[in-house]
Amino acid sequence: MAEEQSPDPAHPGHGCSQEDAEQERLLSYWQSVGRGHQVDVPRVHPFQTKWACIKMQEEQYEQSICLGFMKLMKYICEQNSSGLYLGMTIPIVTLVHTNESHSEITRSVTVAYYLPELLQEQPPQPYDSDIIIEEWPPTVVYTRSFRGVTNEDSIMREINFLAELLESPELCLQNIFIVAGYTNPAAANRHNEIWFLQRP
């Protein structure tokens, strides 16, 4: 069955012409900043969106994301109230938390699948009671791409690296981050991003 990949839900939407002009100005500014600092352009996620989420707490991060992804794939592949294949979207994201000293990530993570546009109004309900449909608020994220496996060490390294690159990391949430995956969690050379969430 062919997989449909929707646009990244964190990319900007369209508004009135004045707002578009302001967005273009900000985009140009951040592109120049990003080229010099290895930080991608902040993405504006202007609308509330629904995600299918599952919380995992395995011994290792890799185990949590693989098992969480497998459960979400069952939901996507017809184990839902519509009985239909929902279509694949990317990225699959994982919410991670750091401990109080910000020295390591905690075992509890949330793996999330963005519901396609056509299903946002009335998402099919999962048969698996561990999967919850959540509505996420509008936000701005600061991102940096990296490749390879994602584990406790690589995630903390990327969090610290992006914090050093940002001029004002204190403007972002300090204990919750997102790891966005654009390739299968089982792949060796994955395309990933670390996301910092701007404070509300």
Rank of each mutant, 00 (worst) to 15 (best):
A52S: 09
A52D: 05
A52H: 02
A52P: 11
C53E: 14
C53D: 09
C53V: 10
C53N: 05
I54M: 00
I54G: 03
I54V: 14
I54C: 05
K55R: 11
K55N: 11
K55S: 15
K55Q: 10
K55C: 02
K55V: 14
K55L: 08
M56E: 06
M56V: 00
M56H: 01
M56F: 03
M56N: 00
Q57V: 04
Q57I: 01
Q57G: 15
Q57H: 12
Q57S: 15
Q57C: 13
E58V: 08
E58S: 13
E58W: 05
E58I: 00
E59L: 01
E59G: 06
E59H: 03
E59V: 09
E59R: 08
E59A: 12
E59W: 04
Q60W: 05
Q60C: 03
Q60V: 09
Q60F: 05
Q60I: 05
Q60D: 13
Q60L: 11
Q60G: 02
Q60R: 13
Y61Q: 12
Y61E: 13
Y61I: 04
Y61R: 06
Y61M: 15
Y61S: 11
Y61N: 03
Y61T: 09
E62M: 08
E62N: 11
E62Y: 07
E62K: 15
E62F: 05
Q63K: 06
Q63F: 01
Q63V: 00
Q63H: 01
Q63T: 07
S64N: 08
S64D: 13
S64T: 10
S64F: 05
S64I: 12
I65S: 06
I65H: 13
I65A: 10
C66P: 09
C66W: 13
L67N: 15
L67G: 02
L67Y: 06
G68D: 07
G68E: 02
G68P: 04
G68I: 04
G68A: 04
G68H: 02
F69K: 10
F69R: 06
F69G: 12
F69T: 15
F69S: 04
F69V: 14
F69W: 12
F69E: 07
M70V: 13
M70E: 12
M70Q: 15
K71L: 14
K71C: 03
K71D: 12
K71Q: 14
L72R: 02
L72F: 03
L72V: 10
L72T: 03
L72D: 11
L72A: 06
L72K: 00
M73V: 12
M73W: 09
M73H: 03
M73C: 09
M73K: 02
K74V: 01
K74M: 05
K74D: 12
K74S: 06
K74W: 01
Y75C: 03
Y75S: 05
Y75M: 01
Y75F: 11
I76P: 12
I76N: 06
I76T: 01
I76W: 00
I76A: 02
I76E: 04
I76Q: 00
C77R: 10
C77N: 14
C77Y: 13
C77K: 09
C77M: 08
C77A: 09
E78P: 07
E78I: 08
E78D: 07
Q79M: 06
Q79S: 10
Q79A: 07
Q79H: 04
Q79Y: 00
Q79R: 08
Q79K: 14
Q79V: 11
N80M: 01
N80A: 10
N80C: 01
S81Y: 00
S81K: 01
S81G: 07
S81H: 04
S81P: 10
S81W: 01
